[in-house]
Design a protein around this nucleic acid. Structure first.
Lengths: 245, 245
DNA sequence: CAGTGGTCTAGACCACATC
DNA sequence: ATGTGGTCTAGACCACTGG
């Protein structure tokens, strides 16, 4: 009898190719937004059939690593193009259904050291340097979300307020183009809390106002955690939208 | 130049077959938990190739309408089997990572009439009869979630407290086996609110305690809305878990 | 028009579950 | 041994995009 944790004895070809393509993406053989070689070329490169390549690409496309465009080619997914994927990592919507993408204001950028909880979550040694960012999102010109973001300095070396403010586009677009860090997946845990004095002041609500907190851990290639953030959100005019399938 | 809302001029075979299979499922040609015919048989029945049937089934499987089991067959998905899908429609988890499935207590079952908001959401005429259920979920033997559920009487005729209490299993399992109503998909909107006196009493928290509210609309075949519910949730020992991909 | 991704086929073979 | 879903192939053809 084999041990319960034995190696899966069998690995389909298309999954092996998926892994190889994923490595190519991780090492930026093709950059964000660029076309990858055509299916026929990849098929001959890996010595497999059209169909097998298609299964590999379909899987990567389901993971949002690639985007297929009929008649044009297959492209590396990017956070810098404002398509329908704009709201992929932003689940906060206005109650009135208006699809507004909020303005972002950076309040603070400081350096600190990873303490127990942060170190554990981000896979750092306690005391390793981290950046702490604090920013506000305005919906309908009103402060609505307060984000406290923690990033390992090792991956975001050279991050400054000036560079942050100079960039036009989403924060994950900024991370992608300026630091080569691609956010691929996130887990979120939501809770309700009462506003304390500091938060109430920033979000212009009374102390004690019920707020939605969203604790996010974001992962890059190889399921490596690279961002921790806590969002605190006023839900009078907005809500958090999700779908169960 | 064609009008922007023109018919999609082209519908792949596998999607047509997917639709036909979906209709078979909706009219219960095969019941929840049962096997459907093998891929080879379906292929010959519809006069298409193995591969085309597989694409159709793969799509239905991705929608959680079917479950494939290698070597055994393809089965109609059901809410009555306690597998990994137990938490598909329950995103509340304990903070301590224990995978507890909460106990449910029905507090109230009454009949009422659909008013503006409910009628609009459920696609009913104002004044049509609805059931109102109120129940509590206990995590770790403590009241944690208060659900207020609204159902159209037309679809749940004969629902009584006795039948509800007699059933062993999840609420959606109950709806499926007792009324033939299958919940396939849901949209949820989350907000933070302060506990009022009534809720505070039931959930055993102080008035004003911040609570997470989850407004859910649940859909069955053909994207027909069949359930509306508001969950109010204590998030001291629990949280709402979700993933962004 | 050429080149891309998307569909469909027919058939071979593999992995897995059950008898 | 049989039957199920899962993989892989080779090739034909379709739909879409861009020059």
């Amino acid at each position: 009898m084999k041990p319960a944790t034995s190696t899966p004895t069998f690995r389909p070809l298309y999954l092996q190719i998926k892994s190889m393509l994923e490595e190519s993406l991780a090492r930026r053989e093709w950059g964000p937004g660029e076309v990858i070689p055509s299916e026929l070329e990849l098929a001959s490169r890996y010595g497999v059939s059209h169909g097998t390549i298609r299964k590999a690409i379909a899987a990567l496309s389901a993971d949002n690593l690639l985007v297929r465009r009929q008649g044009r080619g297959t492209f590396v997914a990017t956070h810098t193009e404002e398509h329908s994927s704009t709201f992929r990592f932003l689940r906060i919507r206005r109650n009135d259904q208006v699809d507004e993408y909020p303005a972002s204001r950076l309040l603070e950028l400081r350096r600190g050291k990873a303490t127990g909880d942060v170190a554990r979550t981000l896979g750092l040694k306690p005391g390793e340097p981290v950046f702490g960012l604090r920013r506000v999102l305005d919906f309908d010109s009103r402060p609505t979300v307060l984000d406290d973001i923690t990033l390992p300095v090792a991956l975001f070396r050279g991050l400054t307020r000036a560079r942050f403010d100079a960039y036009r586009g989403s924060m994950y677009g900024f991370f992608e183009t300026e630091f080569g860090v691609r956010m691929l997946r996130a887990d979120e845990r939501l809770r309700a809390v009462a506003a304390d004095a500091g938060v109430a002041d920033i979000l212009e609500v009374p102390v004690g106002e019920p707020l939605l907190t969203v604790d996010r851990v974001t992962f890059t290639f190889g399921d490596k955690p690279v961002e921790m953030r806590r969002a605190v959100c006023v839900t009078r005019r907005c809500h958090y939208l999700t779908s169960l399938n």
